[in-house]
Structure formats: C-alpha cells, structure tokens
Design a protein around this nucleic acid. Structure first.
Lengths: 136, 136
DNA sequence: CACTTGACTTGGAGTCACTCCAGCCCGGTA
DNA sequence: TACCGGGCTGGAGTGACTCCAAGTCAAGTG
C-alpha cells in the first residue's frame, strides 16, 4: 500500500539494515527481534526483494527503546500496549508519555529493592568476615 | 541424627512456624518455598507429627536471604551452589562471602542499567511532552 | 560451473523460575 | 454430620525468551 506512492521508500536502501546489524545496534538478539515482531511489538518491518527484513533507522530506535524497557522489567503485555499506541500515531502521545512515567516509577521501586538487598548483603558479608577471623 | 541428642530440638515448637507464616515472614509464596525445597535450596525442613512443614527461625532467615537474592536477579544455579555451601557448614564461609560479593557486583551493574534507562525515559518523556504542546 | 560458506528464513522444541490447580488428608467448629 | 480452612503432592501452564533443524539465496573459490 505504501509502495503505491512512487519513490516514497525507493532510495532509502542505503540506510536499511539487515537483522544482524539491527541486533548489534539495538542490543536485542536476532531471535528476540523476530520474536518481538511475531508478538506485535514491532510495527511494519519491511522486506527486501530477497525476503529478508530491512530495518529503518526508526525501527532501530524503536527496538532500542524496547531493549531498555524490557531490560528494566516492563512486561510484554505493557510493551504490546505501548506498541499499539505507537502504531496509532501522534494522537496517542499523551498515553505513551503516561505509560513511560509509570515505568519510571517502577524503576524507582526496583532501585529501592537493589538498595535494600545491598544492605542485606553488606550485613551478611560483614558477619561472614567476622566468622572467618574467629576461625583462624 | 541430630534427634539422637536428647532434648536438642524437643521444646522449640513454640518457635516453629507453618508454611503460611514462613511465607509472610520471608516474602516468598508458599508455592515458591515448596519449589525451593524440592530444588535443594532449603536444607532440612523438619516436619511435625501431622506431616506439615515446620520452619525454624533459622529457616526463615535463610528463606528471607533467598528472597532478596532472587528478587535482585541471582540465578537458581548460583543459589543452589550457595545452598550447598550453607549445608556444608562453617568451612565454606569464605566461599559464601565471595559469592555474595559477586552478587553485589551484579547489583552495581543492574543499577547502572536502571540509571541508563532512566535517562532514555527522561529524554522520551520530554520529547513527547514537547509534541503534546505543539499539537494543542 | 559446482561447491562451500554464511547470513537469513520458518516453525517448533526446550529452558528458567515460578504459578496454579486438582484431588487428597486432617483437625476444628455449628 | 457436614463443612471449612490450611496443608500436602504431582503435574500442567505461563512468560519471555533461546536454540535448533531444515531450507533458501548470494557471493566467493578451485
């Protein structure tokens, strides 16, 4: 459908990357990228005449964002919702912003968990250290 | 074997808890506690005459530690190794300390991920915010 | 020109760490 | 007596990958 508009994407091939390059640039493995596409997290990845995926710079930016969201614990369901909003264009910007704000709240929580765990570890490590001293 | 020493554990029943209490105190679900026991993460949980598990305060402390380790991303395999060391007594204290140190290094790494993600989010949120302004 | 190499394709099986559930037993209450 | 809550076991299901077999295609080599 897009390809009916003559020349619209015709000469962007210089920018288009295959999956391995998309993988190194986004941080996601090739398997994960394919999996995300199947799961509806990546809208409209084009294919070259050889049938291979071609990723635009915008695709890469999107994948990179997904990489960070997933790495910091956003569940797939929420990423799917985020992707649906992304697909629907600028009218969803406010919703997307809210979704990211919610995630940054989650990050705050996770950081608190890390800090609390660090305390527990410090306590344990000190206790072990003391016992080691007593043993020798 | 321990029970051959008369009275050694005989009157500790006032302290012993059932699984639901162990769950609220440790933070792990009852299902997870049973799963951890099956997987060899929890050494020697005793049973009452009714066949139900009885958790000692030491059990609870151990489960709580597992809770924090798992919550902050220590893999099962490593927890199993940690549990094996714990079972083998004080001679393994130095190894246990090293294992926890390694984990706290992992925490450092995770925190860096959170911070990096926060930057990405802040950037995106600001960009969205600007677009919202332009739209209205 | 045949052959090999290597990057890519798909569909499907396997993995990790739970989580949920069916079907059972048991002690206490109305 | 009938029921209820809480525990038990073994096993199936889930989320998010991860790995693999079997195939296609393009480019490079003898």
């Amino acid at each position: 459908m897009e390809s009916l508009q003559p020349g619209r994407f015709a000469l962007k091939n210089g920018e288009a990357m295959k999956i391995s390059e998309a993988s190194t640039k986004s941080g996601l493995s090739a398997d994960t990228i394919r999996y995300y596409e199947k799961s509806g997290l990546v809208p409209a990845v084009e294919r070259g005449p050889d049938g291979l995926r071609r990723f635009s710079p915008e695709n890469i930016e999107w994948l990179t964002l997904l990489y960070w969201l997933r790495k910091t614990g956003m569940p797939m369901k929420e990423m799917q919702r985020f992707a649906a909003l992304y697909r629907d264009g600028e009218v969803t910007i406010a919703d997307r912003r809210k979704l990211l704000l919610k995630h940054s709240e989650r990050l705050r929580q996770r950081r608190m968990d890390l800090d609390r765990c660090n305390e527990v570890l410090a306590y344990k490590i000190a206790a072990y250290y003391k016992i080691e001293g007593d043993l020798s």
